[in-house]
């Protein structure tokens, strides 16, 4: 404070400052609350359940995986959430390095199917789907859309990742509800005693 100023002036300065601070406070609260209220819309910038795949890619991959481990009296790849395993791991997990392979491979797969059947894979009958997969597995499809990855290598990769998603720990995104463990009759969590300690206390 500058003691040279008259007392009334000092008060005026203080009052103005207080008013300004109050205004800033109110504005701050409003911006904070308002900003938070807008927050949910920020999160909805990218709708859909997948982190890496587009909805169309995911739809195709789900259909492929379901052929690899089909549902019968026990659930299949779709029921076990295999797509979520692959999606999560390709996006930012153990399968990161395969991201470009999936992008190119699924596109080549789509083209292969269109050329051979004039229809999307998901629209084919189970028999036709199996036929497409067998053709690609044996590398007998038209190689034109396939550069890197090669068709058979891509199929082997998807088979392996489907197995990982179906049989691995649910913590990685697949094997929902321990579906595969229940199918194999494996208890989880395992019932397993540790020791036979008896407390010395009464």
């Amino acid at each position: 404070m500058n003691p040279a100023l008259p007392a009334s002036h000092r008060t005026a300065v203080t009052r103005r400052s207080a008013l300004k601070l109050t205004m800033m406070g109110l504005a701050g609260t409003a911006v904070g609350a308002g900003g938070s209220a807008v927050f949910p819309w920020l999160a909805k910038g990218r709708p859909g359940p997948y982190r890496f795949f587009t909805d169309a890619e995911a739809e195709l991959l789900v259909a492929i995986c379901e052929q690899i481990i089909p549902r019968d009296d026990v659930g299949g790849a779709t029921d076990a959430g295999v797509i979520h395993y692959i999606d999560r791991q390709v996006a930012a997990g153990m399968l990161r390095e395969h991201a470009p392979t999936y992008r190119r491979g699924l596109e080549a797969f789509r083209l292969t199917c269109l050329a051979a059947h004039q229809a999307a894979f998901t629209e084919l009958s189970t028999e036709a789907k199996t036929e497409v997969l067998r053709t690609i597995e044996a590398a007998r499809a038209d190689p034109a859309p396939w550069g890197e990855p090669a068709q058979d290598a891509f199929f082997r990769l998807v088979v392996d990742h489907t197995m990982q998603g179906f049989y691995g720990s649910p913590r990685h995104g697949g094997n929902r509800g321990y579906l595969s463990y229940r199918m194999l009759g494996l208890d989880y969590p395992q019932v397993l005693g540790r020791n036979k300690f008896r407390s010395l206390e009464p």
Binding site: Q67, I69, P70, D72, L133, L184
Partner: peptide, 16 residues
Amino acid sequence: ARWGKAHKDFQRRYFK
């Protein structure tokens, strides 16, 4: 067979 129904059947038939 490495995939399809045959895969699942093998897992169930042989695992235990």
